[in-house]
Lab assay of single mutants.
Amino acid sequence: SSCPGKSSWPHLVGVGGSVAKAIIERQNPNVKAVILEEGTPVTKDFRCNRVRIWVNKRGLVVSPPRIG
């Protein structure tokens, strides 16, 4: 992607959502990480300053967080 800084975090799958949020925002200060339960409807727009963290009912990351 053409967004500045780190853009994906595949190693965070299985980690707690709040831990993942802290790591992502520390590694790329340009983004705001948002924790969402899988299945939550979201907009389809692409934004360089957003990372969606998809978690299951136990709050664990279920897919690699990435910019968008």
Score class of each variant (00 low, 15 high):
residue 31 V to H: 03
residue 19 V to P: 01
residue 2 S to F: 15
residue 45 D to W: 05
residue 56 N to A: 03
residue 13 V to G: 07
residue 20 A to P: 01
residue 12 L to C: 06
residue 23 I to T: 05
residue 12 L to D: 03
residue 58 R to Y: 12
residue 66 R to H: 15
residue 25 E to F: 00
residue 35 I to R: 00
residue 22 A to W: 10
residue 32 K to M: 10
residue 11 H to L: 09
residue 11 H to S: 13
residue 21 K to W: 00
residue 46 F to L: 09
residue 4 P to M: 12
residue 50 R to Y: 12
residue 24 I to P: 02
residue 59 G to V: 00
residue 23 I to C: 08
residue 4 P to T: 12
residue 6 K to Y: 14
residue 26 R to Y: 08
residue 59 G to M: 02
residue 56 N to D: 11
residue 58 R to A: 13
residue 54 W to D: 05
residue 48 C to L: 09
residue 64 P to C: 06
residue 66 R to C: 10
residue 5 G to R: 15
residue 56 N to K: 03
residue 44 K to G: 12
residue 66 R to P: 06
residue 55 V to H: 04
residue 16 G to W: 09
residue 34 V to S: 10
residue 44 K to E: 14
residue 46 F to S: 10
residue 48 C to H: 11
residue 63 S to N: 09
residue 49 N to I: 01
residue 16 G to I: 10
residue 22 A to P: 00
residue 28 N to M: 09
residue 11 H to W: 10
residue 47 R to L: 09
residue 39 G to R: 03
residue 49 N to G: 08
residue 53 I to S: 01
residue 65 P to Q: 01
residue 2 S to P: 12
residue 17 G to Q: 02
residue 22 A to E: 14
residue 24 I to S: 02
residue 33 A to L: 01
residue 64 P to L: 02
residue 41 P to D: 11
residue 13 V to H: 04
residue 42 V to T: 14
residue 54 W to C: 06
residue 37 E to H: 07
residue 12 L to I: 00
residue 4 P to D: 14
residue 62 V to S: 10
residue 55 V to R: 00
residue 1 S to G: 14
residue 50 R to Q: 15
residue 56 N to V: 04
residue 11 H to N: 15
residue 23 I to G: 03
residue 56 N to Y: 05
residue 24 I to L: 04
residue 33 A to T: 06
residue 5 G to C: 05
residue 2 S to N: 15
residue 16 G to R: 10
residue 63 S to Y: 11
residue 43 T to Q: 11
residue 1 S to V: 14
residue 2 S to D: 15
residue 61 V to L: 02
residue 19 V to Q: 13
residue 39 G to I: 03
residue 3 C to F: 15
residue 57 K to W: 04
residue 68 G to H: 04
residue 17 G to L: 01
residue 30 N to F: 11
residue 34 V to P: 06
residue 7 S to Y: 10
residue 30 N to P: 03
residue 22 A to S: 13
residue 38 E to Y: 07
residue 52 R to E: 12
residue 40 T to E: 07
residue 45 D to R: 05
residue 67 I to V: 12
residue 24 I to H: 01
residue 65 P to A: 01
residue 52 R to M: 12
residue 64 P to Y: 05
residue 11 H to C: 13
residue 48 C to T: 14
residue 5 G to S: 14
residue 36 L to V: 13
residue 21 K to P: 02
residue 64 P to N: 03
residue 54 W to A: 01
residue 67 I to L: 12
residue 30 N to Y: 09
residue 30 N to D: 13
residue 57 K to F: 04
residue 55 V to W: 03
residue 5 G to F: 13
residue 20 A to L: 02
residue 55 V to Y: 00
residue 57 K to G: 06
residue 44 K to L: 07
residue 30 N to C: 13
residue 32 K to G: 04
residue 54 W to G: 01
residue 45 D to T: 07
residue 10 P to V: 06
residue 40 T to F: 04
residue 52 R to Q: 11
residue 6 K to L: 15
residue 61 V to A: 02
residue 25 E to C: 02
residue 12 L to A: 02
residue 56 N to R: 01
residue 32 K to H: 06
residue 47 R to E: 15
residue 45 D to K: 06
residue 62 V to W: 00
residue 19 V to R: 09
residue 10 P to D: 07
residue 67 I to N: 07
residue 68 G to C: 09
residue 66 R to W: 05
residue 48 C to K: 13
residue 62 V to G: 01
residue 27 Q to F: 07
residue 15 V to F: 08
residue 60 L to Q: 11
residue 43 T to Y: 04
residue 4 P to E: 09
residue 22 A to K: 13
residue 63 S to R: 12
residue 56 N to M: 03
residue 39 G to P: 00
residue 43 T to A: 13
residue 41 P to Q: 13
residue 56 N to W: 00
residue 25 E to I: 04
residue 63 S to G: 06
residue 64 P to D: 04
residue 33 A to D: 04
residue 25 E to M: 04
residue 35 I to Y: 03
residue 28 N to D: 09
residue 44 K to R: 11
residue 60 L to S: 08
residue 26 R to S: 09
residue 57 K to Y: 06
residue 1 S to N: 14
residue 2 S to V: 12
residue 34 V to R: 06
residue 36 L to K: 03
residue 28 N to T: 06
residue 21 K to I: 02
residue 18 S to A: 14
residue 20 A to G: 00
residue 49 N to R: 05
residue 26 R to P: 01
residue 68 G to A: 08
residue 27 Q to L: 07
residue 55 V to D: 00
residue 55 V to F: 01
residue 52 R to G: 07
residue 15 V to L: 14
residue 13 V to N: 01
residue 27 Q to K: 08
residue 10 P to K: 06
residue 7 S to G: 15
residue 52 R to K: 08
residue 65 P to D: 02
residue 14 G to I: 03
residue 11 H to E: 14
residue 60 L to H: 06
residue 60 L to M: 09
residue 9 W to P: 01
residue 10 P to W: 04
residue 4 P to K: 06
residue 3 C to W: 08
residue 46 F to C: 10
residue 59 G to C: 06
residue 5 G to Q: 15
residue 58 R to I: 13
residue 67 I to K: 15
residue 50 R to S: 13
residue 51 V to R: 02
residue 58 R to C: 10
residue 61 V to I: 04
residue 6 K to F: 14
residue 51 V to Q: 04
residue 14 G to M: 02
residue 11 H to V: 05
residue 19 V to G: 03
residue 9 W to K: 04
residue 51 V to P: 02
residue 27 Q to I: 06
residue 44 K to I: 07
residue 61 V to W: 02
residue 42 V to Q: 05
residue 23 I to F: 11
residue 29 P to Q: 09
residue 37 E to P: 09
residue 8 S to N: 14
residue 3 C to A: 14
residue 30 N to K: 14
residue 28 N to H: 05
residue 57 K to I: 00
residue 29 P to W: 02
residue 27 Q to W: 06
residue 50 R to G: 12
residue 27 Q to T: 06
residue 32 K to N: 08
residue 68 G to M: 07
residue 34 V to K: 08
residue 41 P to S: 11
residue 11 H to T: 10
residue 15 V to R: 10
residue 30 N to V: 07
residue 55 V to T: 07
residue 6 K to M: 15
residue 35 I to K: 03
residue 8 S to H: 12
residue 46 F to W: 13
residue 53 I to H: 07
residue 61 V to F: 01
residue 28 N to L: 09
residue 19 V to Y: 11
residue 43 T to M: 10
residue 51 V to W: 02
residue 64 P to T: 10
residue 17 G to F: 02
residue 17 G to H: 04
residue 31 V to P: 04
residue 49 N to T: 10
residue 7 S to E: 14
residue 62 V to E: 02
residue 10 P to M: 05
residue 19 V to T: 13
residue 44 K to Q: 13
residue 56 N to T: 02
residue 64 P to E: 09
residue 16 G to V: 13
residue 12 L to K: 02
residue 29 P to Y: 00
residue 46 F to I: 09
residue 57 K to R: 10
residue 66 R to V: 13
residue 64 P to M: 04
residue 56 N to P: 04
residue 23 I to Y: 10
residue 30 N to Q: 11
residue 67 I to W: 05
residue 53 I to P: 01
residue 38 E to D: 07
residue 35 I to S: 00
residue 18 S to Y: 14
residue 33 A to Y: 04
residue 34 V to W: 05
residue 4 P to V: 15
residue 43 T to R: 09
residue 66 R to A: 12
residue 28 N to R: 06
residue 26 R to M: 13
residue 28 N to C: 11
residue 54 W to Y: 07
residue 12 L to W: 04
residue 44 K to P: 13
residue 40 T to I: 07
residue 54 W to F: 09
residue 29 P to S: 09
residue 52 R to W: 09
residue 12 L to Q: 00
residue 1 S to M: 15
residue 53 I to W: 02
residue 40 T to A: 09
residue 25 E to V: 03
residue 1 S to A: 12
residue 55 V to E: 01
residue 2 S to E: 11
residue 65 P to V: 00
residue 63 S to E: 14
residue 4 P to I: 12
residue 26 R to I: 06
residue 10 P to Q: 06
residue 30 N to E: 13
residue 2 S to G: 06
residue 40 T to K: 08
residue 13 V to L: 07
residue 47 R to M: 13
residue 37 E to N: 10
residue 65 P to C: 03
residue 41 P to E: 12
residue 62 V to Q: 08
residue 16 G to Q: 12
residue 26 R to N: 09
residue 10 P to N: 10
residue 6 K to P: 14
residue 29 P to I: 05
residue 33 A to V: 12
residue 42 V to H: 11
